[in-house]
Each structure stands twice: as structure tokens, then as C-alpha cells.
Computed example of a mutant assay.
Amino acid sequence: MSKKMKKPVYEVNPHTMIILPLKTKSGVQSEVFELNDHRISSFTPLFLIKTSCQYFGSSYEGRREGTRFLTGVTHKPPIMIDPVSFTYAFPTTSAGRDDCIWIFPQHISEYYDSNYNCTTIRFNNKQKIKISVSFATFNNQMARVSMLHMKFSQKMRAVETEYPYSNLLFPPVSLAAESREPYNTKEVSDTNDNFVDFSYPEMSKQKKNKENKEE
């Protein structure tokens, strides 16, 4: 059963996989999936992203500006929330929209086209989530966050080369920009029980209400 959180505000951490918007009678809240946890926050996804940026020493606007400076991306830009743990996130739509989902790509093992402009994501913990975002759009956002990671890593390597005795806390991290095969976009079976279909939120909501009544 999901944990209901009122306060304090949820803070993004290295275990955060995805933040989904959850529409309720009182407004938009957040459904957060972590590697080993699942919880509900009474705040919007964008509010959680903004406060998490502040928690790690910057503003949300500052992170967006950093992305623009490094990559030139201004529309739906990915951001680096925490430079020490290399925690990245990207929005699936314009961040101010109520249906915007925030994805943390470092936990994605594969993703694939699910037809009808939907994409299914499989995370490293085997959790699968289907969202109403076209494969082309999702793939483009993955490319953008990969570019951000590459540009930032290049900057850090340049600093380490110029100042080799500096005690820099930037250990190498495997992500899309590293020399490995990070994403497998082949078709896989949807028979896994550990599957969340967020492509039709209303249907998912009805399913949850039914499960709650049975409990």
C-alpha cells in the first residue's frame, strides 16, 4: 500500500525513478516511485522538483539555465538536480502542465513503443510503467539528458585535468553518455505483474479504487 505523505515535502534522492501527476478533488498531487518504495505526496510534481533543486543548493530556474548554457536546449529541458550523485530528471511535457511526468533516466533499463502514442518504461528494479508519451518524444528527451550528462562530464574532466590535486567529488557514473549500451528498445512481454499503466490515468484510478474497496 502506498504511503501518504503530508509533510515534510518529498525530496528527490538517488533512488527516485519517476514522479507522476495524480489528479484528485483537491488538485494535482504526486505519485512517486522509488527503487524500493512507492508513496503519495500532497504537492505537485513541479513543486517537488523545485524544492529538491533548492535542497541541493540551486534554484529550478538556475538548473534550467545551466542546461541551456551547456546544451542550448530551452524547450522541455532536462535538469541535473544533484551534481554530486549525478541525479538527472526530464519532463515529458512543458513543466507547468498538470499532466507533466518527471523521469529519472539513470534507473531505466529499457523502454519501448507501446502503440497509440504510448511508451513503456522498464526500470532497473523490474518495475514497468506505461505513460501517454510517444516513443519519438521520449527518445528525444533521453537524447537530451544524455547530451547534458556528456557536456557536464566534459567540463568536470577539464577541471580535473587543469587542477589535478583538487579534491573534486565527481566520481564517474554510468549513464547514457558513457561508452556502454545503456538502452534496449526491443519489444518485451507485458505479462509482468509488476506493471503500472499510466497511459490512461482515469482507468488506473478506477482500478485503484476497486482494489481499495476489496481491502
Results as ranks from 00 to 15, higher is better:
L22R: 09
K23D: 07
T24I: 07
S26W: 00
S26Q: 01
S26K: 08
S30T: 00
V32A: 09
V32G: 10
V32F: 13
F33Y: 14
L35Y: 09
L35K: 13
R39S: 11
I40G: 15
S41A: 11
F43V: 09
T44P: 06
P45V: 01
P45K: 10
L46E: 03
F47Q: 04
I49H: 00
K50V: 10
S52H: 12
S52D: 03
S52A: 14
Q54P: 10
Y55C: 07
Y55T: 07
Y55H: 13
F56T: 08
G57Y: 01
S58N: 08
E61D: 05
G62K: 07
G62C: 03
G62S: 10
R63V: 15
R63L: 13
R64Y: 15
R64Q: 14
E65D: 15
E65G: 14
G66Q: 12
R68M: 03
L70D: 02
T71L: 04
G72R: 01
G72S: 05
V73Y: 04
V73C: 01
H75G: 06
H75K: 04
P77V: 00
P77W: 05
M80C: 00
I81G: 04
P83D: 08
V84S: 02
V84C: 01
F86E: 13
F86T: 14
F86L: 09
T87K: 15
F90S: 04
F90R: 02
F90Q: 01
F90C: 04
P91W: 03
T92W: 08
T92S: 06
T92P: 13
T93N: 15
T93E: 15
G96N: 11
R97P: 13
D99N: 09
I101Y: 12
W102Y: 15
I103T: 09
I103H: 13
F104W: 06
P105S: 12
H107K: 01
I108D: 07
